[in-house]
Write a protein that binds this DNA or RNA. Structure first.
Lengths: 213, 213
DNA sequence: CGACCTGTTGATTCTGCTCAATCAACGTGG
DNA sequence: CCACGTTGATTGAGCAGAATCAACAGGTCG
């Protein structure tokens, strides 16, 4: 349960506005959430935003009949927890052990412009994902995820999958069996290579990009 | 091409914060966009937000291979046009003839808090739709749309569909033939009645709600 | 070692897509 | 007024992609 605040400074997702925001915020302690730990639950009273110091967080929504949709993964340098109402309509969990700093913006002189920008970025990302879920087949969805992760991790050739197949499936709106089959398929086509179950080497980036045309 | 600013005051979607926002803005003229007219195009320079005085607007995204995803419909009282970057990643079109007021927020003393709230509401709505596209079948998607429209139009029994089948399909991530078939199916089950092609009477609201469980 | 969990693979089913025909509503021009 | 073309909506037949159900492999931990 060791905290590594130094991760924060080196991550490519780190944005100027986020830094501004952090600077203007009250210093708050970093809380470590082990794998699978709940950061907030669906229905909890909403309030402060959350900043990812390190690790990966999933934002999920559960329907009455038990189906789960993951609306976003957040990694180091990102802010999550925006809610329109006064309670959380989604819940947040640590995927792989994550350090979270609470941003106390309840009242006072928070830099609202920065917050607006962050909210809009969340919106933009969600809209992108909407396109993926609405108009892409399973192969294309997987390709989009791999490219997205590759970009966010700043590595053109190697992608780390901090989440397991089930999470990927619930993010892409498919089943985990289909995730397996598609990776198998991409492997057979020499588009990727599975160095490990959660470590994927991109052999043919163009092929992936073509799928996301 | 007659403008009816009085629509604005009576629509249920009208929120206090939107009113605040409007009050604080420079008065701007209302532009009328006839059916199918482009309000802004994908790739256009982004800037001011847009306020719907009356009518219905669709926000669309086109992929390289021509598939279209409608990410949102906006009706009277709503604000659209948030963009993370400096150009529009989606385009906006009038569905049925819409009156749009441009909100000049470029710089100056705009009420950033209100904007943030509006952006967050857009985000919340988009996340909801993500759940629909990711984890719902065609029937359930249609049911969700009908209930959503019913609520936004403030009428429990009658839903007006300002958009045509093609738009519904691209919003729900299915084909227009499937939209037709599902309406047929709902009609056969006595859940709805088609008073006209774009006028749907809800006979069994509970059945619809069960589908969205 | 055995229990369990995650991931992979196979067989079968089914939802929704594609392709295609038909129909109704509407506008235009003879 | 009517024949014609156009556009949007509906319906049908066949097919494909992904889900479901099920078996099995590998790894981890008690």
């Amino acid at each position: 349960m060791h905290i590594q605040p130094s991760f924060r400074a080196v991550h490519p997702a780190q944005q100027n506005h986020t830094l501004d925001l952090l600077g203007a915020m009250q210093p708050a302690a970093v809380t470590f959430y082990p794998e699978g730990a709940v950061i907030y639950a669906q229905g909890d009273k909403a309030g402060p935003l959350h900043f990812v110091e390190f690790g990966c967080v999933r934002i999920c929504r559960l329907s009455a009949d038990g189906r789960r949709q993951i609306t976003a993964f957040h990694t180091a340098g990102e802010v999550f927890g925006f809610e329109a109402g006064d309670e959380h309509e989604s819940y947040a969990e640590s995927v792989d052990g994550a350090g979270i700093r609470v941003l106390r913006t309840a009242n006072g002189a928070e830099p609202a412009g920065s917050l607006l920008l962050l909210a809009i970025k969340s919106l933009a990302r969600t809209q992108n994902h909407l396109m993926v879920l609405g108009r892409r087949n399973a192969n294309e969805r997987m390709a989009a995820l791999l490219l997205d992760l590759s970009e966010r991790q700043g590595n053109d050739h190697l992608v780390h999958l901090p989440m397991q197949r089930n999470d990927i499936a619930d993010y892409l709106g498919i089943t985990f069996e289909t995730v397996s089959r598609i990776l198998r398929c991409l492997k057979d086509q020499r588009v990727v290579r599975l160095k490990a179950v959660n470590e994927i080497e991109i052999l043919d980036r163009e092929a992936l990009e073509d799928m996301c045309a």
